[in-house]
């Protein structure tokens, strides 16, 4: 966003108070400092003063803030209207590279990276931006650059989730392509149920697949009362259980055959009455015939009990059905 320069600001930087920049008139050249609270810095400035001046460049009638976004906000919190600044001459080559290098001297959150990358592409063009990609750690992976560009289009709520590590970049990039009502619905769900990062991706997969198949929107799907019911039913066991139950509801809707296979297998396993010290592992993808049975024991007597149980296992119909589900 560009703003005309206030008439109060002299065209010639030399006419400003020496080395002072008017804070309200500065335009951020790069959107660093997203989701970074300025209060602590303001407190520090009030105690020891501003240790590093802002980095500013005049561009036509505008004043670009190349470095010092957070310092500017902290100073404004303190009620200051101007601050010491280094003014780069208008034609300084590589001014953006300088700005990037200055800002990258501290940890940058993923939302900042996304926002800065998108700004670079939009203002400088793809080719020019790619020359600077290395400074953001994006020079080796075109996919990562695409995802950052897309993720930057998220609304503030989504960007905050990305900044705080509650949304990974790939999921953020996907979500950014969704209509706003759907983004809101999913972000609301994520805030309420706090799924793990990998489960967030599963949620997005399920919602996208179902929306495409059923011609519904993710928001429509999430407003299904059965999801709320699954969630409520499991709530007493805690938030992870509620999240798993709601996700399982969607999984069953998306994959009725796999859900049925899982149900049958679970019932057969239950019917086997496995001793607590025996674990039977089955291929979760139902793809092949690889089973493994683990027995835990600490003495000969315990082993004898397990061996007796083991001898009886081939005779159990449920066990045979587990091994051969071809009639299912």
């Amino acid at each position: 966003m560009t703003k005309p320069l206030s008439p109060a600001i002299p065209e010639d930087p030399a006419a400003l108070p020496p080395g002072e920049a008017p804070l309200a008139e500065l335009e951020e050249a790069l959107p660093f400092s997203f989701a970074r609270p300025a209060e602590a810095l303001a407190e520090s400035i009030s105690q020891v003063g501003l240790l590093r001046p802002l980095l500013v460049q005049r561009e036509g009638s505008r004043l670009k803030l190349l470095a010092g976004n957070l310092r500017r906000r902290a100073l404004q919190l303190l009620g200051r209207s101007a601050a010491p600044a280094v003014f780069l001459p208008p034609a300084t080559p590589d001014a953006l590279a300088l700005a990037l290098a200055d800002n990258l001297g501290r940890p940058v959150n993923p939302a900042e990276t996304a926002l800065v990358w998108r700004r670079l592409v939009e203002t400088r063009g793809q080719a020019e931006a790619e020359k600077l990609a290395g400074l953001l750690g994006l020079d080796q992976a075109p996919k990562l650059r695409r995802q950052n560009f897309q993720a930057a289009a998220l609304p503030p709520r989504g960007l905050l989730a990305l900044a705080e590590g509650r949304l990974d970049l790939a999921a953020a990039a996907r979500l950014a392509n969704w209509p706003e009502a759907d983004q809101d619905a999913v972000l609301g769900l994520f805030e309420r149920l706090n799924p793990s990062l990998s489960n967030r991706r599963i949620w997005l997969d399920l919602l996208e697949d179902l929306a495409r198949r059923e011609g519904l929107s993710p928001a429509d799907l999430l407003s299904d009362p059965d999801i709320a019911a699954s969630e409520a039913e499991a709530e007493a066991r805690g938030r992870p259980a509620a999240e798993a139950a709601a996700r399982d509801f969607l999984f069953r809707r998306r994959n009725p055959l796999l859900a049925e296979l899982r149900k049958k297998r679970a019932a057969r396993l239950r019917a086997l009455n496995l001793p607590p010290s025996a674990r039977l592992a089955l291929d979760p993808q139902f793809e092949d015939l690889s089973f493994s049975l683990t027995l835990a024991f600490s003495n000969l007597d315990e082993f004898r009990v397990l061996a007796d149980w083991l001898n009886g296992l081939p005779g159990q119909a449920g066990f045979r059905d587990l091994l051969d589900d071809s009639h299912d």
Partner: peptide, 9 residues
């Protein structure tokens, strides 16, 4: 991609 899929080995 509407069908049901597993992730094979």
């Amino acid at each position: 991609f509407n069908g049901e899929f597993i992730l094979a080995g």
